[in-house]
Design a protein around this nucleic acid. Structure first.
Lengths: 244, 244
DNA sequence: CTCTGTTTTTAGCCTTGCCTAAATCATAAA
DNA sequence: TTTATGATTTAGGCAAGGCTAAAAACAGAG
């Protein structure tokens, strides 16, 4: 059984570099909020066993082995299933599920994973639009682009939003920029200026900063995959907005 | 934040000795599957802080302080709410929920606890009939007796069954000895012999060993509290009986 | 009261995963 | 090519929570 720490390292490597990219010690350290020295020793350990979970080259960083990739996807499946479960079954807002899932993902048995998946109808995306890895360890591929890269006057739908920043999710949700919302870009200001987005539902236009816009992904409105995606209500159904 | 280990020690002390009984090092060690030496050092640590969680006397054992009692009840509330949630919402059998809850209880936030409780309608007992501590840290009192101590020919209902032994729960469930089942004792064989129990629903008579019978608690059929208890279906709804 | 066997405690050690401080490597600029 | 700068690794430690082996305390039998 992998420790919580090891699971967190594997997940970080996957989320930062996917299957093939080498990730530096410092980057991992920043994401996991530990020192680079700690990362070095953990990566060395993970690379040293007889069935290594990562490839590691001194001063060059690390990437997952096939073994490690499988484990990472398992954990990610847990995480995303739990997020969706909290959202659908217990009414948590899309801004609230990540932190709780971060803890639950480590203690979900196979049996519980299966029951949750079945209960949710074997879902393919979590409340932020992230694809849920399949039981047999494959990550569904989707054709989307960053909102920043969307040409002006091209209708699209929000297909995915970064899940880790609670504040940003709350902000986006408040603007109506929820999963599957139909939008189009009115104008991109030059010099890294804000992006003007028309939100079709309500026909409002909203200015978004570059930082936010790079965290949002869209699919062209014509893409067929959209048909399969239910329209989740991403607002927080009844919890107070106590801690901001 | 208390570590998982500390939480397990507090829970063990409560479950073994309640609020007042001193529990010996060896007993705790056996329950937690660690060595007595480990227990000694943990108890010393828990008693040493400025707000001690346990009273501890060398060679005499330990019992919870008020502080420790509060924490123990919080953990127990998590455990039992989770057990009920797994049973009611995800369809786990009463023999399957304990082990999973043992892990989940440590990672349930206040917010999640509240949502689960609300979803279940602020329940007062878990799937094994154990009372669920209230949010403000009180353990509901119930008037029950061990099946062993029930006089013959006195109608009663099963009000509680020990939750930790998967096999025994499966056995009892198979016999129809589920929560709230109406029963009466036909005869107690002498010399610590078996107990003959009539199961009203089906009117069968079943012989139970002393070991099992001491794990089952009952309430007299006249007791008023019973009215409030819903009749759960404790059978495993669809999982295979793979690992016995 | 003393002996003996059981229980508990002490002492010392190990692993995991983190840390700081110092040393080393890699790279971009001069 | 040399040098400076930032990133990475090494070395040495610490806290938690477990273990084994040996010492000490208790409790029951004589």
């Amino acid at each position: 059984m992998l420790s919580n720490s090891v699971q967190d390292y594997l997940k970080a490597l996957y989320e930062m570099g996917g299957e093939s990219e080498m990730i530096g010690t410092g980057a991992v350290a920043a994401r996991l909020a530990v020192t680079p020295a700690s990362v070095t020793s953990m990566l060395q350990k993970l690379a040293a066993s007889d069935a290594p979970l990562v490839h590691y080259k001194k001063h060059r960083g690390a990437r997952l082995t096939d073994e490690g990739l499988g484990k990472a996807l398992e954990i990610l499946r847990h995480h995303r299933l739990v997020e969706l479960f909290l959202h659908e079954t217990l009414g948590f807002g899309w801004d609230e599920v990540h932190d709780q899932a971060e803890k639950l993902e480590h203690v979900i048995s196979e049996e519980l994973e299966d029951r949750i998946a079945r209960q949710l109808g074997d879902p393919v995306v979590d409340p932020h639009g992230h694809p849920i890895p399949t039981k047999d360890g494959r990550m569904p591929v989707r054709h989307e682009k960053r909102l920043i890269d969307l040409p002006a006057a091209t209708p699209a739908r929000i297909s995915r939003v970064a899940d880790h920043d609670t504040e940003m999710l709350r902000y986006l949700g408040g603007l109506g920029l929820v999963l599957n919302a139909r939008i189009e870009i009115v104008e991109k200001s030059p010099f890294d200026g804000p992006i003007l987005v028309r939100i079709m539902d309500g026909d409002r236009v909203q200015a978004l900063g570059r930082r936010v816009a790079s965290q949002v992904h869209v699919m062209l409105d014509s893409a067929t995959e959209m048909a399969a995606m239910p329209n989740h209500d991403n607002t927080n159904s009844d919890a107070g907005d106590s801690n901001a």
